[in-house]
Write a protein that binds this DNA or RNA. Structure first.
Length: 582
DNA sequence: TTTAGGG
DNA sequence: CCCTAAA
C-alpha cells in the first residue's frame, strides 16, 4: 500500500509507504536536500532527521550546500527522513516511513517525495526492488494531504506520531518499481500531475530528476540483523561508514555545517583580522592572564600538523548466501588536529569541554574529504566495488587505509569562548592544519580502552588500534566523540544546543488557544493539551515562546522579526496575558 | 519534574 | 534556546 499525503497549500507533503503486505528485503534510500534553498537566512539551518529506531538515529544540520543522505536501515521498524522547515517552510518537509514486514522476500520499493522550497524542483528518489519489473503508475489518488493544522502541532520532523491515516490505492504490481518524480510533475503537485514510474536495476545509482541526487545506496536488510544505533551527532562533520554483519551500511552525508548557530555564537565576540585570524574583541587583550591553564598536546602525532588519524581494521566475511562477501571495518579512533587550548583557571570543566568541542567542531566543521587508500595508493574510482578495488578477502587488508582531510582549508584560526568566569578561553591550532591527509590503518594492535582516557590531553591523544581478531562492531567512522569516554560523550551530546526551530503560525495559534484556556502558569498542561505530539516542544519551550509572544505583541510591527504572526493572534496573546495576570 | 525567570 | 533556583 502506498500512502501519499500532500498537504494543503501551506502544509507538508509526504509520501508514505507501508509495507505491511509488501515484504521487504532491501531498499534504497536517498535523500537530497538542496542547500541553496537554505541560504536566505544566515542563522538558519535545515535539519535533516533520519530516524529509524532502533537502527538509525541521526540528525544533521546543513546549510548552503546540498546534502546527500543515504542510509541503510534494518527492517523491523519504521524509518523516516524529515527535513526541518524552520527556514524553508513547510513545503520542504519530506519524510519517509517504512514498515517492512519480518519476512523479506524480495526487495521492496518505496517512493520518496521531496518537495522543495518552491515546488519548482522536486528531488527524485527511487527505491526499487528486484521483483516485479512492471512499472507502477502513481495516480493522484496516491497523494493525500496532511492538514496544515499540524495535527496537534506535531512537527513534521516528529514522526513518533503518525499523521492521520492517508488513504490511497496503489496497483498491486507496485513491487519492484521505481518512482520518479520529475520537476514538472512536482511543480504542479497541487495541480495533480503525477510522477511516472520507471523500472531500474536494483543496484544502479539513479540520477533521475535532479542532478543533486548524488548517490543511491543499496543494501540488504536482514530481518535478523542485530539492531544498532547508528548515531553521529558531532555537530559539524558527519561522515559515517560502517560495515557490519551481513550488511553493508553506507552512510554518506555531506553537511556543510552543523552548528552554524553555535559557531555564530562562538564568533560573536570575535572579528576576523586581515590576517585571517579570529581576533577576540574583548577579553583577549588581557592576554594569557595569570591563572591561565594551558594544555598542550604532546603526542608524537602532533607533528603531523593537525592531521587526523583514523585507525581501523577490517575483515572480510563470507556471508552464507553466496557471493556476498561483506567487509567489516572499524575505525577505532579519530584524531583531531593538534590544538592549543588556553582557559582561565576559573573556567568550569563544563566550559572546558565545550571549548574543546567548539575547537574540534570548528576545525572539522566543513566536513571531511575521505579517500580510500590501498597499499598507499588512492582508490579513485568511486564506482568500483570493493572487490574490484581489491578490498576483499584474499587481499592484504593491512594495507587498507583512509585519508581524512578537512574539506576547508581555512587559514589558521583562533577561537575564543567565553569562560564561565567571564574570562575567555582560547583555542587555536598550533600548526597549519589540514594539509596532509593522515591516515593510518592498522589491524594488529591492542584493543583500545577508551575508558582509560580521562584528561582532555589524553582524550586528544587516543591512538590505539583494534585487534584484527576481535569482532568488529559498527562504529561511526569518524565520530570525534569517540575520543572521549562514553560517559563524557553523553555529556557532550547533551550540551549540544538544540537546533532552532521557530514556531509556525499554526503552532502559535495552538499555543494561544491553549493558554487562553489554561492560563500562563500551567505549561505542562499546555504542552499536553496542544503540543502533546510535538516531541520537540517542551513545556519550557512553550513558556519561552509565550514570553516572546508577549514581547512581540508589545512592540511595533517594524521591530518584529521572523515569520510574521497575525495581529489577531498577538492581540489574543495580550488579552490572555492580561487576563491571566490577574 | 515543573515553574518561573534571567541569560 | 539555555540554565537553574525553587517548589
Amino acid at each position: 500500500m502506498l500512502d501519499c499525503v500532500p498537504r494543503s497549500a501551506k502544509g507538508k507533503r509526504s509520501i508514505r509507504k507501508k509495507f505491511e503486505d509488501n515484504p521487504m528485503h532491501r531498499f534504497d534510500l536517498l535523500a537530497t536536500v538542496a542547500g541553496k534553498l537554505l541560504t536566505e537566512e544566515e542563522d538558519s539551518s535545515t535539519l535533516v532527521n533520519i530516524t529509524g529506531p532502533p537502527n538509525l538515529k541521526d540528525s544533521k544540520n546543513v546549510k548552503n550546500e546540498q546534502v546527500d543522505v543515504s542510509n541503510l536501515f534494518e527492517s523491523e521498524d519504521s524509518v523516516r527522513i524529515s527535513c526541518d522547515d524552520s527556514v524553508l517552510g513547510p513545503d520542504h518537509i519530506f519524510k519517509k516511513e517504512l514498515h517492512p514486514t519480518k519476512e523479506a522476500a524480495s526487495a521492496p520499493d518505496f517512493p520518496i517525495l521531496y518537495p522543495n522550497k518552491l515546488g519548482k524542483e522536486s528531488v527524485l528518489t527511487s527505491i526499487k526492488g528486484d521483483g516485479d519489473k512492471e512499472p507502477l503508475q502513481i495516480t493522484q489518488d496516491d497523494v493525500v494531504k496532511i492538514g496544515p493544522d499540524m495535527y496537534n502541532a506535531v512537527d513534521p520532523m516528529d514522526m513518533d506520531v503518525k499523521p492521520p491515516p492517508l488513504v490511497s490505492s496503489v496497483p498491486p504490481h507496485e513491487k519492484g518499481v521505481e518512482l520518479v518524480v520529475d520537476r514538472e510533475s512536482h511543480k504542479s503537485f497541487s495541480g495533480c500531475k503525477f510522477p511516472t514510474i520507471v523500472t531500474n536495476n536494483y543496484h544502479r545509482p539513479h540520477h533521475i530528476g535532479d542532478h543533486r541526487i548524488r548517490k543511491l545506496l543499496a543494501s540488504k536488510i536482514r530481518k535478523q540483523a542485530p539492531k544498532r544505533i547508528y548515531k553521529e551527532e558531532l555537530s559539524n562533520t558527519e561522515i559515517k561508514s560502517a560495515f557490519y554483519s551481513k550488511k553493508v551500511c553506507y552512510a554518506r552525508q555531506r553537511t556543510r555545517k552543523t552548528t552554524m548557530f553555535k559557531r555564530r555564537n562562538l564568533f560573536e565576540h570575535c572579528s576576523v583580522s586581515p590576517f585571517g585570524r579570529q581576533v577576540c574583541n574583548q577579553g583577549t587583550s588581557k592576554g594569557p592572564a595569570k591563572g591561565t591553564i594551558k594544555f598542550e598536546e604532546s603526542d608524537s602525532l602532533s607533528a603531523s600538523h593537525g592531521a587526523s588519524v583514523a585507525l581501523s581494521s577490517m575483515i572480510v566475511q563470507n556471508s552464507s548466501s553466496s557471493q556476498d562477501y561483506h567487509v567489516k571495518l572499524n575505525i577505532k579512533s579519530f584524531k583531531v588536529p593538534e590544538l592549543f587550548i588556553e582557559v582561565p583557571e576559573t573556567a568550569t570543566v563544563g566550559s572546558l569541554k565545550r571549548t574543546i568541542m567548539e575547537a574540534v567542531t570548528a576545525v572539522l566543521g566543513n566536513g571531511l574529504h575521505v579517500s580510500v587508500l590501498l597499499q598507499g595508493k588512492k582508490v579513485r574510482d568511486d564506482n568500483k566495488t570493493l572487490r574490484q578495488a581489491g578490498i576483499s578477502c584474499g587481499n592484504k587488508l593491512d594495507d587498507l587505509g583512509f585519508s581524512l582531510e578537512p574539506k576547508s582549508s581555512q587559514a589558521p584560526f583562533q577561537l575564543t569562548v567565553r569562560g564561565d568566569s567571564e574570562r575567555l578561553a582560547r583555542i587555536q591550532p598550533t600548526a597549519t592544519p589540514f594539509r596532509q591527509p593522515i591516515v593510518t590503518f592498522s589491524s594488529n594492535c591492542p584493543e583500545s580502552d577508551h575508558d582509560s582516557v580521562h584528561s582532555p590531553t589524553n582524550a586528544l591523544s587516543v591512538n590505539k588500534t583494534p585487534s584484527s581478531s576481535q569482532m568488529l562492531v559498527p562504529v561511526p567512522s569518524m565520530d570525534l566523540l569517540d575520543l572521549v569516554p562514553r560517559r563524557k560523550l553523553r555529556q557532550s551530546e547533551l550540551s549540544q544546543r538544540r537546533i532552532r526551530r521557530p514556531f509556525s503560525v499554526a503552532e502559535v495559534e495552538a499555543l494561544v488557544e491553549a493558554v487562553e484556556k489554561l492560563g500562563t502558569g500551567r505549561w505542562r498542561d499546555v504542552k499536553l493539551r496542544a503540543f502533546d505530539k510535538a516531541k520537540h516542544r517542551t513545556y519550557v519551550d512553550l513558556k519561552d515562546k509565550w514570553k516572546t509572544l508577549v514581547h512581540t505583541a508589545s512592540i511595533s510591527p517594524q521591530q518584529r522579526r521572523g515569520e510574521p504572526v497575525p495581529q489577531e493572534l498577538l492581540d489574543r496573546v495580550l488579552s490572555a496575558q492580561a487576563y491571566w495576570s490577574q
